[in-house]
């Protein structure tokens, strides 16, 4: 049986348990090569280290890396409902103790939607979500993990999250003026560069609201947390929802 280690980023664990539950349930429903998936949640997991590393303190993430390798070294796949955490692990998970093991661990990290489209090869979902939804393309998922084609490149379009959302009954996806502009979260950027960060978030939210989105979804809750923070301050009726919750609805 295939084992999947569920990596729930620290802030998702604490603030967005519903997204993590939806991810778990969604994964438990899937099969790989006709066989079921056993989803495990290693309890000693904490954080991928990205907040420190993106702030210039990658050297402080060494103990977290060792911890991560220890927690997830044994599973077949590591799946996370966060594009930026998955990207950070894929790019920066190293170990002074056992680099081979870190490399093997690094190579089995998947963001949830790419795991569903590329490994599970999902072709249909029993999900229904009768709302107008805008997809926020998080930068690390988009330009780091290539979950979708990037608007800057002269290349054929594709989108793994959209491919999955299109399998959901009743959903109506809205078109955006700027389909892959950054929301301005950026880790500590959101406080160090508060003025620009908030403006970027407001502009992203406005694009979705202008096109009638009732929900903004995406594969990265850090961005959605930022957008939600702005929506709530504006008393907007538009809500954020992690893509796993729609796919599991």
């Amino acid at each position: 049986m295939t084992t999947v280690g569920l990596f729930v980023p620290c802030y998702v664990d604490q603030f967005y348990p519903k997204a993590a539950i939806a991810t778990l349930e969604l994964l438990e429903k899937q099969q790989i090569n006709g066989g079921p998936i056993q989803v495990v949640f290693p309890k000693g997991q904490t954080c991928c280290g990205q907040p420190m590393a993106n702030s210039g303190f990658e050297h402080l993430t060494k103990p977290l890396n060792e911890q991560f390798v220890e927690q997830f070294g044994a599973v077949d796949y590591i799946v996370s409902p966060s594009g930026s955490c998955a990207l950070h692990l894929k790019e920066h998970l190293h170990s002074d103790r056992n680099e081979d093991r870190a490399t093997a661990t690094r190579q089995k990290v998947y963001e949830l939607t790419e795991f569903l489209t590329d490994v599970v090869k999902v072709t249909h979902l029993k999900a229904r979500f009768p709302y107008r939804v805008g997809l926020h393309q998080s930068c690390h998922g988009l330009r780091g993990l290539h979950l979708s084609q990037m608007s800057e490149l002269v290349a054929s379009p594709f989108s793994k999250p959209m491919q999955l959302l299109n399998m959901v009954d009743g959903i109506e996806m809205v078109n955006l003026d700027r389909p892959d502009e950054c929301c301005g979260f950026g880790g500590t950027f959101c406080v160090v560069e508060e003025a620009v960060s908030a403006k970027m978030g407001k502009d992203r939210v406005a694009d979705h609201v202008r096109h009638g989105a009732e929900y903004i979804t995406g594969a990265d809750l850090s961005c959605l947390m930022h957008l939600e923070g702005i929506l709530r301050r504006q008393n907007s009726r538009t809500k954020v929802i992690h893509i796993a919750e729609i796919l599991n609805s």
Binding site: V8, V12, D13, Q14, F15, Y16, P17, K18, A20, I21, F41, K43, E194, A198, G201, K202, M225, H226, E228, G229, I230, R232, R233
Partner: peptide, 13 residues
């Protein structure tokens, strides 16, 4: 210019 998320009753773990 932003709110933090409402803390849920329980964490995922």
């Amino acid at each position: 210019q932003r709110e933090m998320p409402e803390p849920p009753k329980e964490s995922f773990r």
